[in-house]
Design a protein around this nucleic acid. Structure first.
Lengths: 187, 187
DNA sequence: TTACTAACGCAATGATCACTGCGAGACCTG
DNA sequence: CAGGTCTCGCAGTGATCATTGCGTTAGTAA
């Protein structure tokens, strides 16, 4: 175990070739997901990444696990939880950021692929978001104010955002995301 | 063109072998979708259906088109729009029915596969539902009462139902679906 | 620098897939 | 019942995929 973990958890030789291969494969997956014409298969991903297919088979095993790995590194720490002091402002900014994130075609394609790949990957997309939302709500409660329950906030904010992004062809806009907050909070 | 369309739109020889093959293939797809271990590929589907793979290749071409076809026949006319005379009761019953529908593992697996398969198929799952919801709202307006906009109802009802079904491991229950209606309608 | 371990590239194998003429059988029409 | 048309099954082909053993290279530690 190294004394100071270098802020990465790639495990087993974080620096050097392994990390480069990992980054190249992740990048290849993201690229291929946008080009929906091509099939997302291990040899195709490996060729695009300039890596031998054997490497991908050994490190990830299947397309599903590879997608889950890409998703975890994609949905971790990319959106900072806002802290403006006001619950409404926090939620509005967070919803707007999330709308921008889900408007990105790459992200959207990744989410769709994760959903289609299997069961466990889907919770990866929502887990981090739900925790962030929970943090906002708990902070408001810590201020001594009332706040909606997490379930209610998920239904009113996360659900419409993801639904619109995944099931419709209209991208969620930041402005529309703010109206969701208006409907959630009374007044 | 036949004089009286027999309430089916299978096109080109609705009765007989073609219809049987179509039904068998559809059933095979539904079965294989529940067994998520197996890959959903044309030869596998054909073998399960007791049909030669060539037939499936010629009729549907790809897995994506096959899934879209299964989805259209699955999401058409399976839920009757309630008409109780009260908007709240209509929405509560409709949401509860939809929750029951989305709790079915077969339906859920189909939705997830459709989302992952490509772009156009996803709207098939929601298009019929949104039209049904619109019908309920317009009927209430026809009674001279105020009703939420379609967009608002979609965000408050359809989105949480689909989000919970697809992205979480908790099935939506009819009771919880009714609470969504409570949150949508004032009072 | 040197030795050790882990990750990668290479080549080969069997299996599965996607696709295409061809002939036989089933279905509708007169 | 007879003719025409459409669909299906069959067999074969090339391509791609998933997997394995082995040698080489890169990264780590003494």
């Amino acid at each position: 175990m190294p004394a100071t973990t270098p802020a990465r958890r790639t495990d087993t030789r974080p620096g050097g070739r392994s990390a480069r291969v990992r980054a190249a494969v992740h990048q290849a997956v993201k690229e291929l997901l946008t080009e929906e014409a091509s099939e997302l298969t291990i040899p195709v991903v490996a060729t695009r990444a300039g890596v031998h297919p054997t490497t991908v088979y050994r490190r990830w095993g299947s397309v599903g696990e590879l997608l889950a790995d890409v998703a975890t590194s994609r949905f971790s720490g990319d959106i900072v939880v806002p802290d403006t002091g006001s619950l409404r402002a926090d939620l509005e900014r967070y919803a707007a950021d999330l709308a921008r994130d889900l408007s990105d075609p790459d992200t959207l394609a990744l989410v769709r692929a994760i959903v289609g790949a299997g069961g466990d990957g889907a919770s990866v997309c929502r887990g981090e978001r739900q925790r962030q939302l929970e943090a906002i709500l708990e902070r408001e409660q810590g201020r001594g104010h009332q706040a909606p329950t997490l379930e209610r906030a998920v239904d009113a904010l996360l659900a419409p955002l993801y639904y619109r992004a995944v099931f419709t062809d209209r991208s969620p806009t930041p402005e529309w995301a703010r109206t969701l907050v208006t409907h959630l909070l009374p007044g």
